[in-house]
Design a protein around this nucleic acid. Structure first.
Lengths: 342, 342
DNA sequence: ATTACATATGTTATCGATAACATTATAATA
DNA sequence: TATTATAATGTTATCGATAACATATGTAAT
């Protein structure tokens, strides 16, 4: 039963026209109260469920939003998604979630599929290796509204919600320099094709410059956003002759830091005595590590919320201007930087 | 440009009919090779993107799957989603993700919305408090195919992919009894309205019965799936007079265990000496805790994969029989049960 | 009583793609 | 050459909901 009830079925059952049924169910004016009541009742009893597909076809609006995230198991992103949902729940929008698994090709496919689904807008955190800018340019020329979050593609004129990556990176690096008087600092960077990769790297460099610390190229290693890459990068540092090794390691994010920490442990060194390590994210695991990780806390939930709000505004108001929104981080000083536990 | 290219536009540009364009782009027979080439080329150059909304309306198929999960920040679920995606990526299906935030009302709303979107099928892990079975019965009578995973609603005739909850729960409880010779065991249970809540509870009871350990009602506390509830439940146990307290705590899942562990720590007790604690999930945090958590490892990724496969089969073959699929867990013996570190 | 106008309802066309049927062109066969 | 397949293309109707227009009532104003 109730398998495919349409407006027409209800109309026939009551001897009225489909249009009247449509009007009644959508609270349009010019429908007799009596008729309306009858229709609403009948619709319920027949188990009518409006067909959004048909609705979308005529209105050219789907009330759906696509979300493209690079890595669903990186705890930061589920938290962002919760923030997004906080906004969409209660609005009329539904979420299409896609996971690019850090591959640009999958990201493109996902976006294309979302466009075919005629989503009204897309929230994108870009994957590791962005190669083809023309792809984004085309996307932004289409009817689909776009807001980037966290990993933004810049200079396209789209809105972007991120955290103050650069200055946060500077700040946590300076903590090592000024509080712990460490000068030999290594950086495990993210890919430079990605905005956060670039920004955090710049922030790190800025801290060195500010304190007149020369850069040692051997200590800047392009790693990646995942544990594995942090692990590998750290092993490269450990392969250096002892006297050429840094005293501290600044990493692009917590998973990378956790990988590095594992490598350090396996090599028989200890944290923070042999190497101070700091991260960026404030992953759920950060405070649970044997030596709790000093890191930058990113308000993921807030980022998601802001991004979703901005996107909905952009969808609903043609003139909504593009903007960059920066949500501020906080420093989480724990023990991996050398601060005592108290 | 390229804002809204339709078949008709291409057809007009080339002086052919829309039908021919449709045939050409869908690789249907009876289209001249020459014509086809021209059409394909033109479609690309005009930036044509097929309108899935229109396609769905005529085919009555959307190639979309809805996913309803109860809590996106519980690490188990993102991992399940990854498994689901592994299957849908490479298939033609797109995922609608919704998060019920452990509220049945939100779950219902999500399902209704998904039905309006005319998804071909829905993967559901049910929220904490299932009240209205008629709702599910109606759902199963509709055209929408359903597969439950992890938290199944039973006896509805729908397929279900879960882990061997009951026997795993028995096994980890027995570990405490036989290996550590503990008899005073408490259970922080999940809500009994949810299948995993029931099953794990039964598994626990079965272990006690098997070893002739009488049940102490004060020690069985209905907690919940979240940290907060584990924390509160543990505090109830700690409020008992010292001689009435258990020696071990079996919990319904890792977040609950982690909450309990926090309460134990705050009360100044130590694990496993004062209280042994075991969990269920194998959360990322489990092995990182100060005293690594003994728990049941759930193959989340596998659960997601199987559920998605089964759903797609159910969508594509009318006669596909419903079945219960159990993916097997493994015991992760760490230190919180009292096992020494080695 | 007649025009004017609001209210309630029905009819037709439309969104974009395609199934089902119709037509034309081309090649193969008798 | 006439006849008949077969390939290539066009036309119309359809999916479900609704916008735009049309019609039928009733009520108020003149």
């Amino acid at each position: 039963m109730s398998s495919e009830v349409t407006l027409k079925h209800i109309a026939e059952a009551l001897g009225v026209s489909a249009m009247t049924v449509s009007r009644a169910l959508n609270d349009r004016p010019n429908v007799d109260e009596q008729t309306k009541k009858k229709i609403v009742e009948k619709a319920r009893s027949m188990g009518y469920r409006p067909n959004h597909v048909a609705k979308s076809l005529v209105s050219n609006k789907t009330y759906t939003i696509g979300v493209v995230i690079p890595e669903i198991t990186h705890a930061f992103f589920p938290e962002v998604v919760r923030g997004i949902e906080e906004v969409t729940y209660g609005s009329d929008y539904q979420l299409f979630l896609t996971n690019a698994n850090e591959q640009f090709s999958r990201e493109m496919e996902a976006i294309r599929a979302l466009q075919s689904q005629r989503v009204d807008g897309i929230l994108i955190s870009s994957s590791q290796t962005v190669e083809d800018f023309s792809f984004y340019e085309e996307l932004l020329n289409s009817r689909t509204k776009v807001v980037f979050f966290d990993r933004c593609v810049e200079n396209l004129g789209a809105s972007c919600v991120s955290v103050n990556d650069r200055s946060s990176s500077t700040r946590i690096t300076e903590h090592l320099i000024t509080t712990h008087n460490i000068k030999k600092i290594s950086y495990l960077s993210g890919p430079q094709e990605v905005s956060v990769g670039r920004k955090r790297y710049r922030g790190f460099m800025e801290a060195l410059e500010k304190h007149n610390i020369p850069v040692n190229d051997d200590w800047v290693i392009e790693a990646g956003f995942r544990e594995k890459s942090g692990y590998n990068a750290m092993n490269k540092l450990l392969a250096l002759p002892p006297e050429d090794r840094p005293e501290a390691v600044v990493t692009v994010n917590d998973p990378c830091a956790i990988g590095a920490i594992q490598a350090i442990g396996e090599a028989g060194f200890s944290i923070p005595d042999d190497f101070a390590v700091v991260g960026f994210t404030d992953d759920v695991r950060a405070e649970l590590l044997k030596v709790p990780l000093t890191t930058v806390h990113q308000p993921a939930y807030e980022v998601g919320k802001r991004a979703a709000q901005k996107l909905i505004k952009t969808i609903e108001h043609e003139e909504e201007p593009a903007e960059n929104i920066e949500v501020l981080t906080t420093l989480k000083i724990r023990e991996s930087c050398g601060c005592g536990e108290e």
